[in-house]
Simulated scan of single mutants.
Amino acid sequence: MKAVFAGTVLAEADESELVQIEGNYYFPPSTVHPAALVESPTPHTSSEKGVRQNYSVIVDGEKHEDLAWTYPEPSPSEIEAVGTDFSGYVAFSPEVEVRS
């Protein structure tokens, strides 16, 4: 599977490595191209999952705000509900195409 924005591959992993939560694919951190993301100051906290770190996507030197996110330390109850530890896994907003 690939996460693609404006023709640029942001992450690539075998589908078996991904975690699907609420219709979003979460990519393991090691499969995300590090130069493609920059931490965003936009705060967000989910009552179920915990504190979410947002990221902006950088393509051709242009920043696209808050198109990705991760839960660095998801709540234990959410890890249990999902069935696997998805700490640090990265998901993308609908503007980013996730395809095989």
Rank of each mutant, 00 (worst) to 15 (best):
L37Y: 05
T45Q: 07
A36P: 04
T8W: 12
H44S: 13
G23E: 03
N24A: 01
T31A: 14
P28M: 09
E48R: 10
T8K: 11
S16Y: 06
Q20E: 14
P28C: 11
N24P: 06
Y25D: 02
Y25L: 10
Y25G: 01
V19K: 03
K49A: 00
P43S: 08
L10C: 07
S47M: 04
E22K: 12
G50V: 00
R52M: 09
R52N: 07
G7D: 10
I21W: 01
S30H: 13
V51N: 08
E15K: 11
L18P: 01
S47A: 13
P34R: 06
E15R: 15
G7V: 13
S30A: 14
D14T: 04
L37K: 11
V38E: 14
A35M: 15
L18G: 00
H33F: 15
E39L: 13
V32W: 03
S40E: 10
V38W: 11
Q53A: 12
G7N: 13
E17Q: 15
Q20M: 15
A11E: 02
V51T: 13
F27R: 03
Y26A: 01
Y26D: 02
A35Y: 14
Q53H: 11
L10T: 08
E39H: 13
I21Y: 00
H44L: 14
A11N: 04
S16M: 07
V9G: 10
E22N: 10
V51W: 09
P28K: 05
E17I: 08
Q53G: 05
T45C: 04
E12R: 07
Q20V: 13
E22R: 07
Y25E: 03
L10V: 07
A13Y: 01
I21Q: 02
V9N: 12
E12H: 04
Y55V: 04
V51L: 12
Y26V: 03
E15S: 14
E15M: 06
I21N: 05
F27K: 03
Q20S: 15
T31F: 12
K49H: 03
S30L: 15
L37I: 05
E48K: 07
E15Q: 14
P43I: 07
R52T: 09
G7C: 11
A13N: 01
A35L: 13
N54C: 10
V19F: 06
P29Y: 00
T45K: 04
G23V: 11
K49Y: 00
S40C: 11
V19I: 10
T8S: 14
F27E: 03
A36I: 02
Y26T: 02
V51I: 15
A13W: 03
V38H: 10
V32Q: 04
Y26Q: 02
P29G: 03
G50I: 00
T45W: 02
E48D: 15
E15W: 14
V32T: 05
P29F: 01
T45F: 01
E39V: 12
P34F: 09
Y26S: 01
Y25K: 05
S30E: 15
P43F: 05
Q53R: 12
P34M: 10
A11K: 02
P34H: 08
P43E: 05
Q20Y: 15
E48I: 12
E15P: 10
E17Y: 10
H33S: 09
A36F: 07
Q20I: 12
G23N: 11
A35T: 13
E17P: 01
P28T: 13
L37A: 08
S16P: 04
L37H: 11
S47Q: 09
P43H: 05
H33C: 13
